[in-house]
Design a binder for these strands. Structure first.
Length: 515
DNA sequence: TTCCGACAGTGGGGTCGCAAT
DNA sequence: ATTGCGACCCCACTATCGGAA
C-alpha cells in the first residue's frame, strides 16, 4: 500500500468531526491492507509508530525539505527506513539521523510529509487514536468491538491483535487471555471533589490511600518476576528490591497491581521527584538503590494461581490480595459498607485527614462490586486530593498550537516578591474554556510589551486564580520551587497585582518543600 | 430530549541518559 | 565538564460525539 493513501485518509479523518465517519474511513482502509501491511498501517492510523520512539524530535523535524512531486513510497518502505533510523547510534548519530530524515522527507509528497511529521513527532491531530482505530478494526473484521477492546487490553498491544484478527478472523480473539508475564493495561481513576461526593456516586466502597509514586504491575511465575509501568514498559532490572519482595510472597503465580514508593528515615513518604529519579535510573542501579530504596505497596490482584480475577468484584479480588500479601505491603484502607451510614462516612473523612497527615497524596475510593476495567478510566475508582489555590499575576503568554492556533494559551505565572517585582513560578494552559481563551487573547494583547512570535510578554497587571496540587523543587524558576499541576480557575479582575500572593506565603504554606 | 461516559487534544515539570559542545 | 534534547514518569481540564436514560 502506498503511504499516499494513508496520508489522504488521515486528512479525511481529521476533516470530519463525526466519530462514526472517522471509524468508517479507518475500517475501509484496514480492509484493503495486505497482510504484510497490517502491522504498519494499523499503528500508523492510530497515530503511533510500531518501532516506538525513534529519538527524533522537533530539532530534526523542524528543518524543511522540498517535497517530491509524485507519490512513490510504500508503507513497507517507510517502515524499513524508520526501523533503520531507530538503530542509528553513537558519535555523529544526530547528523546521520537528520540526513536519513531529510532523505525520507525528500521522497515524500507534501501531504505525505505532513502525515510523517505528525507521526514521528507524536502529534497526528486527526481526532482518532487507539480507541477509534480499535472501533474501525472491529468494523473491518465484523468482530464485536467489546471483544476487540478486551483483547487489546489483555495483549497490551493493538498491533498484535490486529494482525491475528485480520489474518484469522474474529475467532482469533479468544486466544488473548490474561497471562502471567504479559502486561495488561492498568485501570485508571477519575477525580471527585470530595469524599462525600465519591461515596454518593459509588455506593458501598473501599477508601484507600493514594500514594504518590510510580504505578507498577508485578508478575510472578515461579522464580521469574517481571515488573511493568503504567505504559507497560519493563522495569524489572531497575528495581531488584521489588523482585525480592515478590518472591517472598506466598503465591507462586500471580499478577498484582500497586505503587512503588520510598520512605525517609522517619518513615515519611519521600517526594515523587525522589522516587521518579530512582525508577528512572537504569545505568548504575546499585548506587541508586542505596540512595533511594523503594518498596511496593499493592492494592489489587488480577490473577492468582492461574485464575483470572479481572471480572470478579473488587471485594473478592481484595480477599485474594490479602491472602497473598501481608499487611504492610498493602495500602491502608477503610470500608464504607453502607453509603447511608453516617458513622462510616465520617470515618472515611477522618481516613482522608489521617492519610494526608502521614504525608500521602489523598485517597482513592473504589466500588466494592466493580470488576477490574483494564485500560479504562473506570467510573468505579474515584480519587480525592486536596486542592490549593493562589492568586497570581500573568507575566506572559505563549501562542497556542492545533485547535488553539491564533489564541494566547500557555500562561506564565508570577508571585509577588517583597520588592514589588514578580517571581515566575511556572506555566499553565489548563482549565481554560474557549470563552476564557478568546477573552485572554484579546486582553493580554492590550497589555503586551513584546511579541517574539512565540511568547507575548505583558505588563504584570492581570490577576488569575490558580489551583494546584502542591509545590516541588525546581532548578528552573527563581524561587527554587514550582507549582505541581497548576490550572486556571478564573480571572480575578476585582484584584490588583499588589494583592497577589507572595512567594513568602506560598513557601510558608508548604513547609515540607525547601527550595 | 437530555444526560453522561469515553476520547482526543493541549500541553505542564522533573529526571535520567546520551550526544554534542 | 556542561548543555541540549528526547523519552517517560507524574498529571488536569475542556470540547465533542454518540449511546443510554
Amino acid at each position: 500500500m502506498l503511504l499516499h493513501r494513508l496520508a489522504r485518509v488521515s486528512q479525511e479523518v481529521a476533516a470530519t468531526s463525526a466519530r462514526s465517519r472517522k471509524t468508517a474511513l479507518l475500517a475501509e482502509l484496514f480492509r484493503d491492507a495486505e497482510a504484510d501491511d497490517v502491522p504498519i498501517v494499523i499503528p500508523y492510523l492510530a497515530g503511533r509508530l510500531p518501532q516506538g520512539r525513534l529519538g527524533i524530535g522537533w530539532k530534526i523535524l523542524g528543518t524543511p525539505v522540498p517535497p517530491a512531486a509524485e507519490p512513490t513510497l510504500t508503507v513497507r518502505e517507510v517502515d524499513a527506513r524508520l526501523t533503520a533510523l531507530g538503530k542509528v547510534s553513537g558519535t555523529g548519530s544526530q547528523a546521520e539521523r537528520a540526513r536519513l530524515v531529510a532523505e525520507l522527507m525528500g521522497a515524500s509528497t507534501e501531504p505525505e510529509q505532513r502525515f510523517l511529521l505528525g507521526l514521528i513527532g507524536g502529534e497526528v491531530r486527526q481526532g482518532a487514536l487507539d480507541a477509534v482505530a480499535m472501533e474501525g478494526l472491529a468494523q473491518a473484521t465484523g468482530a464485536p468491538s467489546a471483544d476487540v477492546r478486551r483483547a487489546v487490553m489483555l495483549a497490551g498491544s493493538l498491533q498484535t491483535v490486529a494482525e491475528r484478527l485480520l489474518a484469522d478472523g474474529p475467532e482469533a480473539l479468544a486466544a488473548f487471555r490474561l497471562t502471567v508475564g504479559r502486561p495488561v493495561q492498568p485501570m485508571l481513576a477519575h477525580s471527585a471533589s470530595s469524599v462525600a461526593e465519591a461515596i454518593d456516586k459509588l455506593g458501598a466502597c473501599a477508601v484507600e490511600e493514594k500514594l504518590d509514586g510510580i504505578r507498577v504491575q508485578v508478575h510472578r511465575d515461579g522464580d521469574d518476576v517481571r515488573l511493568y509501568t503504567r505504559t507497560l514498559d519493563d522495569i524489572t532490572d531497575r528495581l531488584p528490591e521489588l523482585t525480592s519482595a515478590a518472591r517472598e510472597l506466598k503465591g507462586e503465580h500471580f499478577i498484582l497491581d500497586g505503587e512503588v514508593i520510598a520512605f525517609d528515615e522517619g518513615g515519611r513518604p519521600r517526594s515523587f521527584q525522589d522516587i521518579a529519579g530512582r525508577v528512572g535510573s537504569r545505568v548504575d542501579v546499585a548506587t541508586a538503590a542505596e540512595a533511594v530504596p523503594v518498596s511496593p505497596v499493592f492494592f489489587d490482584a488480577l490473577s492468582v494461581d492461574g485464575r483470572d480475577l479481572l471480572d470478579l468484584p473488587f471485594a473478592d479480588r481484595h480477599t485474594e490480595l490479602a491472602r497473598l500479601v501481608p499487611e504492610p505491603m498493602r495500602v491502608r484502607r477503610t470500608l464504607v459498607a453502607d453509603p447511608a451510614d453516617e458513622r462510616a462516612r465520617a470515618a472515611a473523612e477522618q481516613f482522608l485527614a489521617d492519610t494526608l497527615k502521614r504525608g500521602h497524596e489523598g485517597v482513592v475510593l473504589k466500588a466494592l462490586d466493580a470488576p477490574y476495567s483494564a485500560g479504562r478510566r473506570g467510573a468505579s475508582w474515584l480519587k480525592v486530593k486536596p486542592v490549593h489555590t493562589l492568586d497570581l499575576v500573568v507575566l506572559a503568554a505563549e501562542w497556542g498550537h492545533g485547535r488553539r492556533t491564533g489564541k494566547l494559551s500557555n500562561l506564565h505565572l508570577g508571585a509577588r516578591n517583597p520588592d514589588g517585582s514578580f517571581a515566575m513560578l511556572g506555566k499553565t494552559f489548563k482549565g481554560l474554556t474557549d470563552v476564557m481563551l478568546a477573552w485572554q487573547t484579546e486582553r493580554l494583547q492590550e497589555l503586551a510589551v513584546e511579541d517574539n512570535g512565540w511568547v507575548v510578554t505583558v505588563r504584570p497587571e492581570l490577576v488569575v486564580e490558580i489551583a494546584y496540587d502542591g509545590l516541588q523543587r525546581s532548578t528552573r524558576y527563581p524561587a527554587g520551587v514550582t507549582l505541581r499541576f497548576a490550572r486556571v480557575v478564573r480571572y480575578r479582575e476585582d484584584k490588583t497585582p499588589d494583592q497577589a500572593d507572595t512567594v513568602e506565603t506560598l513557601l510558608a504554606a508548604h513547609p515540607e518543600v525547601t527550595p
